[in-house]
Design a protein around this nucleic acid. Structure first.
Length: 176
DNA sequence: AATCAGATTTCCT
DNA sequence: GGAAATCTGATTA
């Protein structure tokens, strides 16, 4: 069952945690690529120095204030980052998907750059709602696992709070 | 490497 | 004068 809008309309931290273990499905050329979400990070607005929304108004911060469930794609170095807007409208927050565990295919998705490259995350997803697209969505799952947390990765200025969540002992997380 | 925001320049009514 | 197009520099999990 596809995850719907209200799932995302909660606090980014909650959504980040609950996204773990869910199944991300990407349909390319009528083939479904399924992968388990194993690593996420929560991002906020101006209170968050690692977030782009912290420095005034820009395209990313505007999107973070938009309706929950919208896909937010932005570039870092040569990679594309795959985020989903969370929280209520006008409250900037989002969750970054950092790593996936391939289920019905082989490939490395253990890092946001590799992930978006493999899943062909393109700018065309930007601003779309993930629960209303036909070629990408997230499904519920009932698999059991343990959640671990740490500080976020790759950010220059992090908050004194652990906002990265991942599945404990999973081989596919980007960093152990 | 790619993107965007801000500055600067051009050009049209 | 104002809008659009182009250039430049900063930024970046």
């Amino acid at each position: 069952m596809k995850i719907q809008k209200d799932f995302f309309s909660r606090n980014a931290k909650t959504v980040a945690k609950e996204l773990l273990g869910k199944i991300l499905v990407r349909k390319i050329n009528n083939k479904e690529f399924r992968a388990k979400i194993v690593e996420t990070e929560a991002y906020f607005g101006k209170e968050d120095p690692a977030s782009r929304a912290s420095k005034g108004k820009n395209k990313v911060s505007e999107m973070m204030c938009d309706e929950p469930g919208k896909i937010l794609v932005y570039n870092v170095h040569k990679y594309k980052m795959f985020n989903i807007v969370t929280g209520k409208k006008n409250e900037p927050s989002a969750v970054l998907i950092r790593a996936l565990e391939p289920i019905n295919f082989t490939g490395r998705c253990n890092g946001p750059g590799l992930l978006s490259g493999f899943l062909e995350i393109e700018k065309s997803f930007h601003g779309q709602e993930i629960f209303s697209l036909e070629n990408i969505w997230i499904e519920n799952s009932t698999m059991a696992f343990k959640i671990a947390k740490s500080y976020r990765i790759g950010v220059t200025k992090d908050l004194p709070e652990k906002l990265r969540f991942y599945i404990k002992d999973n081989w596919f997380v980007s960093k152990k």
